[in-house]
Design a binder for these strands. Structure first.
Lengths: 216, 216, 216, 216
DNA sequence: GATGAATGAGTCTTCATTCAT
DNA sequence: CATGAATGAAGACTCATTCAT
């Protein structure tokens, strides 16, 4: 007989065995697949469990919550993307005479990263607007990316290679422009040619940063 | 009980319709206020009704659905903003020798429009990602704005006043950059100075469009 | 779609109409009947609702909780019994030359009161030991009865009609002895003749309070 | 791997049985400790196991059931107490000229016994009202105590040392009065001085049984 | 048109118990 | 015998929507 008052559930068993870790992974995948197909709210924990070939109860041995599952996925995903982008922002890579190709490559990276699981993107962004915890994760990594960008800009500014007034704001603007363009492109409702748009953002950013535009 | 005298035929017709419209309005306001405070899912229809000084049942005489209420609000809001922005994009207004001030003014308009009810913005965007009907409304007006922008750009391009390759893509990019920067600013988690950022977007767009940058 | 996190439910609508009050009563009765038959934990809210010819949801319009239903019943019951007993303890009624009949009558009252719904008694006592809120209700009225008893004893003591050392303790003892004997008798597992036992407690109390015992 | 040498046939037989018994004991203790802290329903078998340094599964090798664990504890406890009390009721001990000290000593014994684990008392009584099997155990030993008491009373009655009409009922009354008073005192919500109350019950019983009351 | 009581499907989560290793 | 992951039935409660008055 289930006890009436749900007490704060003890921490889910931490997976130490290999099998356990794989089960965790299976749940994560099943959940994401369900969310992608049916939407977050519309997916029941039972559905996730069934898809992971598990009983509902088992699921709760691995994750405290339905929410936690997605949150964890967000963590992983976002962390990965951030890593990718931040690596691309390493000042070492911005030494060449022409920086435009670097910009172009950066944009492409971001789009690629985003493209991994377009279906979940929607869900994740929905959560971003709805749930402060999700927002926090998004923002944490955003901060990291923006800081890396800022650092890069500061370096370039010192070398007189960019014409911005102030790196912090510039970093925000570039991040914001690239992020949203990218999101809109991967969401598929932008109604523009993706490649043209990608080149476009690169131009947008380049022209913002660099004096002349030889390509024109 | 007064006998039914034939009333003069030009009696104010549908006196109820006026009242009805006001009730509708009241519900709309109440709902939006609730959503803003508590979130969409978290707001019950009963709460909305109570706030509108109505019984739950009555609510359903005016709107098919909880969803419909917000959807309708989105319609109104978005329509309004679109009008404002589209007006600003009238080629007539882009005749002056220096177009930078026009860009600046445009950006400011968009931000102003967005700032009206920042609380609902979040809800609306959440819905955008979750519900295709909301997305449709967003996209319909986005299309209008982008078309207006495109028209403007085409005109300017013909006059050789902008250095873009292709108006459609350019319109998308500008819209996207301005929209998201704007959203992030009004959402309040951007962690940058709003004014600096606003000037920044204007620069971003200007440098994208126009050859030289006298300010530098 | 039910919202995930149950928020503190707003207060159940307060019954002001007569029909409403009758529905409340119906639920109360249905619940008690279920509890009596099946036990508290074993009764589901749906069962209660069905028995009250209602939908589950409606039930929650009248009571916040399953627990609350029983708690309310306890309130009513216990209040009633207390009233009855306290009235019996009015010093006015303890003026006669022989107080033994008064004691006897008192005991009978208590038993009678207890006998009203023997089935729920068990549930109520179970709750007494399990749930502090139930205990509180029990104790509140116990205090009232014991105080009334204490007052009576104090009066009688002043008149030299009882041979107790101290009214507070005496009140506790008498209350405790009568209560438990009574409970055991009504619970039906005492394995003694009820009438004999009832006379017995009366004697027990009488002999405790009064000097000689003419009956012997 | 050591080859199986035929071991001397008088090897300490069932060395596991001893270990097994100790494990059983450990579980019992762990369970009771949990119940005491958290309540019966609120304690999970996993918690018990953890506290006993065991896996959940192992638990079921020793006890059929969560219920069985407590039931077994009840058996032991109750049996012990009964033994203590019954011994005290041995007619041999009721030979002295004044029986009041014997009563007093008896009461003290009962209280002492009860005080051993006040926390579980509550749980046990809760079960008493909820579960017929628990009730049965309680009643079985109650019967034994009451019979011992009855025997004693019969003896004393034959000697004209008590003024009761009938030993069975008297035994019930005394048992009931002492038990409940005792329970209420150990439960800690009686709101009276424990020592005074204990003396009180002794008086209550003494006056019920014996003619004069020299103390008065 | 207004009212608000009634509806009841639908969800998450818990936990005693089993069983493959 | 031990282990602890897996099981899955079961229940309290919510809330959008309806409908009798």
């Amino acid at each position: 007989m289930p006890v009436a008052k749900p007490r704060p559930s003890r921490a889910p068993r931490t997976p130490q065995q290999a099998r356990s870790r794989r089960t965790r992974e299976r749940i994560l995948e099943a959940a994401v697949a369900c969310f992608e197909e049916t939407g977050y709210d519309e997916t029941t924990t039972t559905q996730i469990a069934r898809r992971a070939n598990l009983a509902v109860g088992s699921l709760y041995g691995y994750f405290r919550d339905k929410r936690t599952i997605l949150l964890e996925y967000l963590h992983e995903t976002v962390e990965e993307i951030a890593e990718l982008v931040v690596r691309e922002l390493d000042p070492e890579k911005w030494r060449g005479p022409d920086l435009r190709p670097s910009v172009r490559s950066l944009v492409r990276r971001v789009v690629d990263a985003q493209t991994i699981r377009p279906g979940v993107q929607r869900i994740l962004w929905e959560r971003f607007f709805k749930d402060a915890d999700f927002r926090a994760v998004f923002l944490r990594i955003e901060t990291r990316v923006r800081r890396a960008l800022e650092t890069l800009l500061t370096t370039l500014l010192a070398d007189g290679r960019v014409r911005i007034a102030e790196p912090t704001t510039a970093a925000f603007l570039i991040h914001s422009a690239v992020q949203w363009t990218t999101v809109r492109l991967t969401l598929g409702d932008a109604q523009v040619d993706t490649d043209a748009a990608m080149d476009g953002v690169a131009d947008l950013v380049s022209r913002f940063l660099f004096e002349s535009d030889p390509k024109m």
